[in-house]
Design a protein around this nucleic acid. Sequence first.
DNA 1: GTGAAAGCGCTAACAG
DNA 2: CTGTTAGCGCTTTCAC
Lengths: 305, 305
Amino acid sequence: MSTVSRTFSAPHLVNAETRTRVLAVAEELDYRPNRAARSLKTGRTNNIGLIVPDLANPFFSSLIKAAQAAARRQDYHLFVADTDENPSEEEELILAFSKQVDGIVLCGPRLSNKALEKLSESVSFVLVNRLIRGLTTVVMDVAHGARVAMEHLAGLGHRRVALVTGPAGSWTSGEIRRAVAEIPGLDAVVIGPNPPTEEGGIAAAARVAEAGVTGVLAYNDLLAIGIIEGLEALGVDVPGDVSVIGFDDSATGRLYRPKLTTVAMPAGAAGRMAVDLLIQSMSAATVLETHLVVRDSTAPPKGTA
Amino acid sequence: MSTVSRTFSAPHLVNAETRTRVLAVAEELDYRPNRAARSLKTGRTNNIGLIVPDLANPFFSSLIKAAQAAARRQDYHLFVADTDENPSEEEELILAFSKQVDGIVLCGPRLSNKALEKLSESVSFVLVNRLIRGLTTVVMDVAHGARVAMEHLAGLGHRRVALVTGPAGSWTSGEIRRAVAEIPGLDAVVIGPNPPTEEGGIAAAARVAEAGVTGVLAYNDLLAIGIIEGLEALGVDVPGDVSVIGFDDSATGRLYRPKLTTVAMPAGAAGRMAVDLLIQSMSAATVLETHLVVRDSTAPPKGTA
DNA sequence: GTGAAAGCGCTAACAG
DNA sequence: CTGTTAGCGCTTTCAC
């Protein structure tokens, strides 16, 4: 019995010939170790939980895809769940997962620092795009992305711009806002918080139009596209009258017309890293780079040419 | 000890007052039942596996989102995995999941009927968009969608059309092809199989252009968009020279310019139903309706107006 | 309505 | 290198 156990979980401890025999019989009997029993004994599950605000958001899809692949390579399975941008659901999910996983990758958490610190006592987790001292994190350098985006607009001649922020409680949204506020000599009006969706953008478009700006940086591509849709419905041309930049470099933005200028975010890399950190139970604070992809939704302001 | 157990898994068997006391102490001790131990004893896990060909495909994202919500409502957790369109990976995943879930939702499986029937002896699963006698299935009426799409093209005056099919092994792709072949008096050239991605579409565009057709029905929106991109790169205007229809009604297609005419697919409903069927361990063959959404990528052929 | 006891399938000392 | 043994935390008869 122990020999069988060892054959599966520590093959090097068993004679090669015996091992082959065990494997052969296992195959014949269609035997596979029961993971529940193994977890019960070892306390480890070989499962990872992944919690995101919105499963349907393409940014998180890429992240999940990469995370799943990374987990699978190391014989881990991935639970996924969606909080619907709802902090209390987030907490419930963490609790529900906690006994069933070795750790949780929490993406764009909306819970407070305090709540997160408290929870981290009972489950180990890796935070993606949220920075809390003492917790393992993978963040993207959105501040840099925001600065480059604003420089791009300034370089084109834009002087008065809008920052259309994302959900309240989003760390990246706050970072972007902070970075923009610190750019010397920039006149940026802040519009938000907004739901990070196309609808959110359409709703924000009126406020953008009223703000009398010629450039817009939006929290993500979906929001940016919504803004463009809303603006065009109001008779404002993009990029003729107003330039718009998003975040994420999503396929939707790339295929949209005008092709969206956007800050590329390494979603896949983040998913992969988070899973790897969790499995190696390393603590670290990793910063991933971002860069601007200039396409057709930005141009010099009217009257410049 | 048993009383505590009963308090959590069969509360009605325990005195209301005792129950309250147990719950209070549990709360204080931060106690939550260990699911691994429970599974070990009961043989049930309260977990469901969900396997899709591509996690990053928005069609599957919607399906997953709905499936997760349905599972969560019934206190089930969802494992997800991505086969990368690879049948052998699909089989491995099924096997890897089998001991850890009560059932598997298999979306757009690429394995053979025989392999699937064999596997169904050791795990219970629900098939989405694949019809096999005796297995529980949720399929979308893509044949109807294809017919309506072709009627739409015919109604606009198109006589010679192309059907750009999806991956080999895809049941929906086969269904669409069959349905199209059976439409009387329709001259349809079949181009495929193709990977169901934008790149696949770009690659297929040349063959579409050579085929001398004025209308195209593509396996999904991604492929349709790729075809449009490829066609326009070749100087062919959509819908001026060629009309294009996709399948899925994805956000990307809705936002793309020209706004894509497409066959709407009830991805969310399918995910929800599949999970519900699995949990109720019902066997059934459910057919979900599809409908055509006419937008801007279709128009009468040149010289008709 | 509650407690006592057995056992789910595995792993991890430990002895041989 | 292999076998023996105890026990992970729960559920489920079976008594009471």
